[in-house]
Simulated scan of single mutants.
Amino acid sequence: MADPDPSRTCRELLERDGRTYAEEGEVGLRDEPAPLYRLLVLATLASTRIRAEVAAAAARELWAAGFTTPQRMRDSTWQQRVDALGRGGYRRYDESTATALAEGAEVVRDRWDDDVRTVRERCAGSEEVAEEVQAVPRLGPVGAGIFVREVQAVWRDLEPYLDGRAADAAAAAGLSRQPDRLAAHVPDGSFAALAATLARLGPGGVEDR
């Protein structure tokens, strides 16, 4: 059933928990190489069957250990990455993910010259961006959707974008699952936050698949 006042519903959702996942993971998102790389790592961590708050906690531990750029991730040891993931509670997939993070940092170097902004330069829209970032190991369609959903906050030409989870939650809340229609009820610059908030409404909690 359609919401008779979608603007109010969007406002209430943003007031309830209007954070992006990048904010939760302390990515410090800007259109610069290091923050965009950290977002890519966060999306990779959130691609597995694990709660996104655990992915965010693990990301924060990686940053605290200094693994904030592709070069620093490549320079880290496998055990250092495992230990950082473990401190964040990311123990179920810590060993395989520690390997994937190093491989992903190599992809960022070899494919994009250590600058994730190259993705945007090469791609003509959200679908192409989502396809391109799946070159990163362990970052499948779900993680690619998370990346695009978050990066639209700084790559504004991709806005408005909803991944499948956020679109399903929008429909369940009586809102349009069509990004263009939904954007008409959201303050300028807030669509990424709304999309993240909607994702948190999905079954089982935040990105809990």
Rank of each mutant, 00 (worst) to 15 (best):
Thr77Gln: 04
Trp63His: 14
Leu182Phe: 01
Ala57Ile: 00
Arg156Ser: 15
Pro70Val: 10
Arg87Cys: 05
Pro6Ser: 13
Gly66Trp: 10
Gly88Cys: 06
Arg72Phe: 01
Thr77Arg: 02
Gly204Trp: 09
Leu158Val: 09
Gly143Tyr: 12
Ala56Asn: 11
Gly202Ser: 13
Pro141Val: 15
Val41Ala: 01
Ala46Leu: 02
Ile50Leu: 11
Ser76Gly: 15
Cys123Thr: 13
His185Asp: 09
Asp157Cys: 04
Pro33Asn: 08
Arg200Trp: 01
Ala43Ile: 03
Ala193Phe: 00
Tyr90Cys: 14
Ala34Arg: 12
Pro70Glu: 11
Val119Ala: 00
Gly164Pro: 03
Gly66Glu: 10
Tyr90Glu: 08
Gly89Val: 06
Pro160Ser: 07
Ile50Cys: 09
Leu62Pro: 02
Trp78Leu: 14
Glu53Gln: 15
Arg60Lys: 15
Leu85Asp: 02
Ser47Ala: 15
Ala170His: 07
Thr197Gly: 08
Leu40His: 10
Phe67Cys: 08
Glu106Lys: 12
Ala167Trp: 11
Ala169Pro: 11
Leu162Gly: 06
Leu194Pro: 03
Asp115Val: 09
Gly88Ala: 05
Ala46Pro: 03
Ala65Asn: 06
Ser126Gly: 14
Leu139Glu: 11
Val41Gly: 01
Leu45Asp: 02
Asp208Glu: 10
Leu162Pro: 12
Leu62Asp: 02
Val82Asn: 00
Ala2Arg: 13
Asp17His: 07
Gln71Met: 05
Arg181Cys: 05
Leu14Asp: 01
Glu207Phe: 14
Glu32Gln: 15
Pro35Cys: 07
Val129Met: 02
Arg156Asp: 13
Val154Ser: 13
Arg38Trp: 01
Thr69Glu: 03
Ala57Gln: 03
Glu150Phe: 06
Phe191Cys: 03
Ala100Gln: 09
Val154Lys: 14
Ala169Leu: 11
Gln178Met: 05
Ala171Phe: 02
Tyr90Ile: 04
Ala196Lys: 04
Pro4Gln: 11
Glu95Leu: 11
Arg60Ala: 10
Gly202Glu: 15
Arg81Lys: 15
Pro6Tyr: 07
Ser190Trp: 09
Gly66Lys: 12
Trp112Val: 07
Asp208Ala: 15
Leu45Met: 04
Gln152Met: 07
Leu162Gln: 08
Ala184Met: 01
Pro187Asn: 01
Ala124Asp: 15
